[in-house]
Every structure is written in C-alpha cells, then in structure tokens.
Simulated scan of single mutants.
Amino acid sequence: MKKFAYSFPILKDKVEEWLNFAREVNTTHREEFNKMHQRIGVKKESWFLQESAEGYSVVVYTEAEDEHFMNKFKKDQSGFSQWFREQVSELQDVDLDFTTQMPEIVLDWKEKEE
C-alpha cells in the first residue's frame, strides 16, 4: 500500500460550503464515493481542515494500491467523479484534472514493532 498526503486551499468565502460538501460526500454521496475509490484503487482517505495565517486548506491523507490513483481519478468519467471535480473547482479553485501533482514523501516513521 502506498501513502500520500497533500493539501489544497479552500477559498476564504467558501469554507462553510466546503464543510457542507464534505458532509454531503460522507452521507448522501457515500456509496458513490466508495465506488469511485474502488475504481481508482484507493483503500483509505482522510480529510483534515487546516487553518493558518494564509487561510484554510484541506489536508488529505490517502492510502492507495499504487501511485497511479490520481491518474485513474482524472480519467474516471462517472457522474459522481465529474460532480466531485466540479465542487472542488468551485470551492477550492483547483482543477483536479490538471493542477494535481503528488508530493514526494521525505519521512515515514513508524513505531518499531517488537
């Protein structure tokens, strides 16, 4: 399993709408979200809302079968995936089809198992 962490800004006047989007993904769209992750090979995903002096960001932690999950997501033309990308574009001003580049992992610590 490969691990990924990345962040995207949330537009300052869209934080409440973004929180509603997150709730909607986790409730009324949960089954579609699950199916999308199955299609692209994602096994776990967590979202964190981060506030800083620059504003708000969503920090995402993902565990996937391989490093190609984002390319699979970009190619997924299901109605849900298209809706999801549109929401992210509107709330975060991020085009997930073009501006996403996975960061390089530089530290991955784990407590030693005995």
Rank of each mutant, 00 (worst) to 15 (best):
S89Y: 14
S81G: 07
F8L: 08
T27N: 12
S7C: 09
P103S: 08
I10Y: 08
N20V: 02
D97I: 01
V88P: 01
D76N: 02
V106C: 04
W109F: 10
D13W: 01
V106L: 12
E24H: 02
K72D: 15
K110C: 07
E31D: 12
L11P: 00
W109M: 10
S89H: 11
L19H: 04
I10G: 02
T99C: 07
E51M: 02
K2N: 15
E111D: 10
K74L: 02
L91A: 03
I40S: 06
G79H: 11
F98N: 13
V88C: 09
V106D: 13
M1N: 07
S7H: 14
L19C: 06
D108V: 01
V88I: 15
A5G: 06
W18M: 12
Q87M: 07
L11A: 10
Y56Q: 09
S78M: 02
W83C: 05
Y6W: 08
L96F: 03
P103Q: 12
V88K: 08
F48K: 05
V58N: 09
F98C: 02
K75R: 14
E113L: 04
T100S: 03
E86V: 02
K43Y: 13
V42S: 10
F69T: 05
W47I: 07
G41M: 03
F48I: 09
E67M: 01
T27F: 01
E104I: 06
H68Y: 04
Q38T: 08
V60F: 07
E67C: 00
K110E: 15
E63I: 10
F69C: 02
V58L: 11
Q101A: 10
A64N: 10
F33T: 09
S89G: 13
W83N: 07
T27M: 05
L49R: 05
E31N: 04
T100A: 08
Y6R: 11
H68F: 05
Q82I: 14
E24K: 05
N71T: 12
D108R: 00
L107W: 07
Q50V: 13
Q38R: 08
D97L: 04
T99N: 15
F73M: 10
E51G: 01
K112M: 09
H37K: 09
T62F: 02
V15M: 03
G79T: 14
I105G: 04
